[in-house]
């Protein structure tokens, strides 16, 4: 990979492999987790995507995937405290929109990334699931999904095709 002096990830050797995109098209948000902060963050992300001339179904997918990821952080990674820091970096390069979300909370289970889940719908109304849709949607709507735990941080990287 190319060396990018001053790029965000260089202070963190573990993240080098994913630091492909130089900073000039980058977008960075730093905020405390929480339902209302998530709303504000999504609004900023959507605004930024629109300013890049992106729209339609792609923006809908990005907003939904990031909502699920940020909800998971509030609910699970920071389950043991009211809020915690979240960093979100987004860039577009080579027809790929890439978003990295970093938190300092509880790691995902040892089994790593939750899978696609089960999309079978029970016949009985009483048996219908009221949750567990989040990871399913994240898998469905992303081009790729990568999780890494390093130096007390969860780093989730998702990509979307944007042509």
């Amino acid at each position: 990979m190319r060396e990018q002096p001053g790029a965000h990830f260089h202070s963190d050797p573990a993240a080098r492999g994913s630091a492909r995109t130089p900073g000039d098209t980058g977008f960075h948000l730093s905020f405390e987790s929480g339902d209302l902060a998530t709303r504000d963050a999504l609004k900023s992300v959507v605004g930024n995507l629109h300013s890049r001339g992106l729209g339609g179904e792609l923006v809908g997918s990005v907003e939904l995937v990031l909502a699920e990821i940020l909800n998971n952080i509030s609910e699970h990674a920071y389950a043991d405290r009211p809020t915690g820091p979240v960093d979100l970096r987004m860039s577009v390069s080579g027809g790929l929109l890439r978003v990295e979300i970093v938190d300092q909370g509880i790691p995902l289970p040892d089994t790593g990334l939750p899978g696609m889940g089960d999309a079978d719908v029970p016949a009985e109304t009483a048996e219908l699931p009221e949750g567990g849709f989040g990871w399913f949607l994240i898998h469905q709507l992303t081009e790729s999904l990568q999780y890494r735990r390093d130096t007390g941080r969860n780093r989730l990287t998702v990509t979307f095709a944007c042509t």
């Binding site: 939904l64 909502a67 109304t125 219908l128 009221e130 949750g131 849709f133 989040g134 949607l137």
Partner: peptide, 16 residues
């Protein structure tokens, strides 16, 4: 204009 999985869960819960 937007629902996430929590919102979907709330609508399913409303049915149940």
């Amino acid at each position: 204009g937007f629902i996430d999985s929590s919102g979907l869960g709330a609508i399913v819960a409303s049915l149940k």
